[in-house]
Simulated scan of single mutants.
Amino acid sequence: MRSRLHSPTVRLRRLAAELRRHREANGWSVSETAGRLGWRSPKVSKIENGESRRLSADDLDKLLNLYGVEERGEREALHRLAKEATVQGWWANYRDAFGSRALPDFETEASAIRTYEALVVPGLLQTPEYAEAVFKGAGLTDDAVSIRRLVQARMERQHILFRPPAPHLWAVIDEAALRRVIGGREVMRDQLQHLVNMAGHHNVDLQVLPFSSGSHPALSGDFTLLEFQDPLDQSIVYVDTASDVRFLEKPDEIERYSLIFGRLQGHALSAAESPVYIRDIMAGLESDDRE
């Protein structure tokens, strides 16, 4: 079974947070809890850190009984979280494209997505032709079937922007990404027009960071900050580099990237000015074609 609305990882993190909250409310350490249950301490730690993907109903009941959780509705809700944590998302079909830790796992339940891209258009806003040119240019593979799957996986990600409840996407895009002609002038024109069209959606705010802004707080690279509706679901930062993918979850890391994004927005053109600026770049492409 595949889920398009539920993230197993987000549900697992929420369950872990609830169980940790109940343990702390009882004033017990991890080792004390493990001792009361006849378990080893690492077992409790892995459950509370979201490292145990499958928490059996029996083990969950033992924890809830120990913590004194008697309210039927709460117990049922926690069992439901444990069950949903085992349901694979649609992205499991594209493990070859996304890897073991997939960004869509978090995007699917995000209430807000804030992203900064310096060199290419954000994946959630790419056209199929532009995405194909990006993958070909990256040189990771020249196999047509593999590239087609990568493009298909990227297009699948974009469904979150059109289904209720849709997350709010804030995208700050460097001017360099808009002027870099990827896939040829026709592909680039279509991509820029798509950005203008998407900027008209109620749940999309798009800002261009112009060259004239000079130095800015995100010169170190791209990032995506994901936030969630449930207060138990902590925000997370996604950073993709040439060598690996990192998910940052510490409060100070979240705060730092939130501050960076806020400052980027201050350097960038407004959401009203940006589509006009993009149209000017499109006009420049058309003028070059006539010369």
Rank of each mutant, 00 (worst) to 15 (best):
R14F: 02
L161M: 01
G184H: 00
V245P: 01
D205V: 08
D233C: 10
A268K: 07
D174W: 07
L248E: 01
L19N: 01
L219G: 11
N49D: 12
A112C: 13
D174M: 02
D289L: 15
R154A: 08
D205R: 14
L150V: 06
L81C: 03
P251A: 05
E117V: 06
P210Y: 04
A283P: 08
H202V: 15
H22F: 15
R53N: 07
E71Q: 09
E24M: 12
L192R: 00
E286V: 07
A133P: 07
G214I: 02
N26V: 14
R21E: 14
A283K: 11
T86I: 00
R179F: 07
G137H: 01
L169R: 04
A17H: 09
L219D: 09
A17I: 08
E255C: 12
W90C: 10
I147T: 12
G139T: 06
P275V: 00
A138R: 15
P167N: 07
I47V: 13
V145P: 10
A34W: 10
S100E: 14
E109R: 08
E70Q: 15
Q158W: 04
S100T: 14
G68R: 11
Q158G: 02
D289W: 12
G35C: 07
T224I: 05
A97M: 08
V134Q: 10
L219I: 09
G184Q: 00
Y277S: 11
S100R: 13
E186P: 09
